[in-house]
Design a protein around this nucleic acid. Structure first.
Length: 584
RNA sequence: GCCCUCGUAGCUCAGUGGAUAGAGCUCUCCCCUCCUAAGGGAGAGGUCACAGGUUCGAUUCCUGUCGAGGGCGCCA
């Protein structure tokens, strides 16, 4: 029962081509939807594509193709127009048929159908958010989360087997800084006054963790302030000293606490990780896998990756450090993988991590990174190539920054100081739905100005409500109709004949193509814009024509169309992680 | 300096190797005795930054210029 106008028209043209120019090869017959409705429902530029090879006027080729076109019940008319376009007008039944298809497939409408049972779904991975577990998620993570979650869902609809992964940076210096920050706050609670360095984590959540530890373990981890500061370089003005001071504090903490350091470290880690995870869950963002950076070290994968690079001759030693010759792979300078003190850099574990992703059998790996990481793409891809992997199987998508605007003014944010708006605060203020939708109202590679006042407003200016309202309106009509929705599948759709009704059908027909294109381009924002357009078509129709009319045939056909619109809006909002309310 | 992204209506932004480049906001006018007016209709608003090139055809692809923003650690 499924009817795909594009492939049908392409088949007709292919047959015609075989008569007009026997043996002529054409890679792909393009059928597109013209912008201008007066150009028909679908159009092909086939004649123009062939003009050069056939050495003929495109219009003449088009005339011959139209002449040889097989008769089809779905097509009312095919005509030559413009520079050589072939414009097709479909029979009304071909246009309205989509309503039935939507009703039959329901939640699966828009999902790619497997061409055959053997058609296998490519395994893909989308890694996103991956925020350091050193404090609450902020609004930047919120954008990455909204983007990544919707992208993963889109890719699933487009027929891929998608794994959502969060890379937990639980091994680096930042975690040590968080642990020592917590410990210093804890000491403070016990009257041991060690000045709290400016490059430690300032947020109140650190004090909260210190309180928890005191509550659970009393004075167990207390050491005198004098002992802590004994071997620590003093803190002066400039940055070099500040880092040395902090490193000294971390060393002192590890030394004084011994094995107990791991307790503080682990406590801070699991608290922040759990907090972030809960935040994301509430936000409707779920992960299939939480991958620990530390596990790469514990299982020897980092050693192995570096040894493999060494074996392949891509490592050299300089000033006591091991360098990866990434300039051989297009990077602008070589990069250190192991410092002279024997510690691996973040880059080293990243190499191991990405090698591991490919070893897990993903055909395509998508990394969603903050735009400030763009300098890392060349070196990571370079390392993959050096290890014998195909770097094109890694796709890095950069997500730009977010600025919050309130009353027309930019809300200031600075990271380390703890003066930033958290994702949780944003969600509390504007709600999850507006959050998710607003983040996707802009292409991901553009910086985003998030208008808090607009996101909060319950007015027709707010695009979230505009789309959700279309869904709620259909629900409201159905409630008043009080019939059996399932029965509408077999409705005769012939009464759907007005311009607005046919335009709405055409919009519903677009949905699967739009999903496919959005998945291909990693562009979930296209879906947000599509839904706005669909809602606009629906509202225009709804305003112009009543659904619940006396004529039963007309009423049922319109109900079927309304239900199909509701279905597509629901499917689309689902992919965006936005609810589809029945009442507003 | 090098690299990335961007330049489209007054504002915020979509879009495409194709025909007369779109939406929202703003402004003007209009539409509920009627399924939620959280809606709809009409109008106004453009040298797609500029210059070359590729092409049957460029706002779209390539190069350059100008302008805006961001990134460039043995940090993570």
């Amino acid at each position: 029962m499924s009817f795909d106008p594009k492939s049908h028209l392409a088949d007709l043209l292919r047959t015609a081509l075989a008569s007009v120019a026997p043996g002529q090869q054409i890679a792909d017959i393009v059928i597109e939807r013209p912008r201008d409705p007066s150009h028909g429902d679908f159009a092909s530029n086939l004649a123009m594509q062939l003009a050069r090879e056939l050495k003929a006027n495109p219009r003449q080729i088009a005339e011959r193709l139209v002449h040889e076109l097989p008769v089809s019940g779905w097509v009312d008319k095919a005509e030559v127009a413009g520079a050589g376009f072939i414009n097709f007008r479909l029979a009304a039944a071909a246009k309205t048929q989509v309503v039935k298809e939507v009703l039959v497939r329901g939640p699966d409408y828009g999902k790619r159908l497997a061409a055959s049972p053997a058609d296998k779904r490519p395994k893909m991975q989308v890694e996103f958010v991956s925020a350091n577990p050193t404090g609450p998620m902020h609004v930047g993570h919120g954008r990455g989360a909204a983007f990544g979650a919707s992208l993963a869902c889109l890719l699933t609809y487009a027929g891929n087997d998608v794994c959502r992964e969060y890379y937990v940076n639980d091994a680096g210096r930042q975690m040590d800084i968080l642990a020592v920050s917590t410990w210093l706050r804890y000491l403070d609670l016990h009257g041991e006054k060690v000045p709290f360095p400016p490059n430690c984590y300032q947020g109140d959540y650190v004090k909260d963790m210190a309180e928890q530890i005191r509550g659970a373990h009393g004075e167990r981890y207390v050491h005198p302030a004098a002992a802590v500061l004994a071997c620590v370089p003093p803190l002066n003005g400039d940055d070099g000293d500040a880092d040395a001071h902090l490193d000294g504090l971390i060393a002192a903490a590890k030394d004084l606490l011994g094995e107990e350091w791991h307790y503080i470290h682990q406590h801070a880690l699991s608290e922040q990780l759990a907090d972030g995870r809960e935040d994301l869950e509430e936000y409707g963002v779920h992960f299939d896998c939480w991958f620990s950076e530390r596990s790469l070290f514990d299982t020897g994968m980092v050693d192995k990756a570096v040894a493999e690079l060494e074996k392949r001759g891509h490592i050299y030693v300089q000033n006591g450090a091991k360098w990866f010759r990434s300039t051989d792979f297009g990077d602008e300078k070589d990069r250190v993988v192991q410092r002279d003190n024997g510690l691996y850099t973040y880059f080293a574990s990243d190499i191991a991590y990405h090698a591991n992703k490919f070893e897990r059998g993903f055909e395509k790996v998508i990394d969603v990174w903050g735009a400030d990481h763009h300098g890392y793409i060349a070196r990571v891809k370079g390392a993959l190539k050096a290890l014998g992997h195909d770097p094109d199987r890694l796709v890095v998508v950069l997500v730009q920054f977010v600025s919050l605007f309130r009353n027309g003014a930019k809300a200031s944010m600075s990271t380390r100081s703890g003066e930033y708006v958290t994702l949780r605060e944003l969600r509390d203020e504007v709600g999850n739905d507006a959050c998710r939708f607003f983040y996707l109202l802009r292409k991901q590679d553009q910086s985003l100005d998030f208008d808090l006042d607009l996101a909060k407003s319950q007015s027709n200016d707010n695009p979230v409500y505009y789309v959700q309202y279309a869904h709620a309106r259909v629900c409201s009509v159905l409630q008043q109709w009080d019939g059996e929705v399932k029965s509408l599948v077999d409705t005769n759709l012939a009464p759907l004949a007005s311009e607005r009704e046919l335009a709405l059908c055409a919009r519903l027909r677009e949905f699967p193509d739009m999903i496919e294109a959005a998945a291909r381009d990693y562009a979930p924002h296209s879906l947000a814009f599509y839904l706005r357009d669909l809602a606009a078509d629906f509202h225009a129709w709804y305003n112009a024509e009543r659904v619940l009319v006396d004529d039963a045939a007309v009423k049922n056909a319109r109900l079927a169309l309304a239900v199909a619109v509701r279905r597509v809006i629901a499917n689309g909002l689902h992919i965006l992680g936005v609810t589809a309310p029945e009442h507003m």
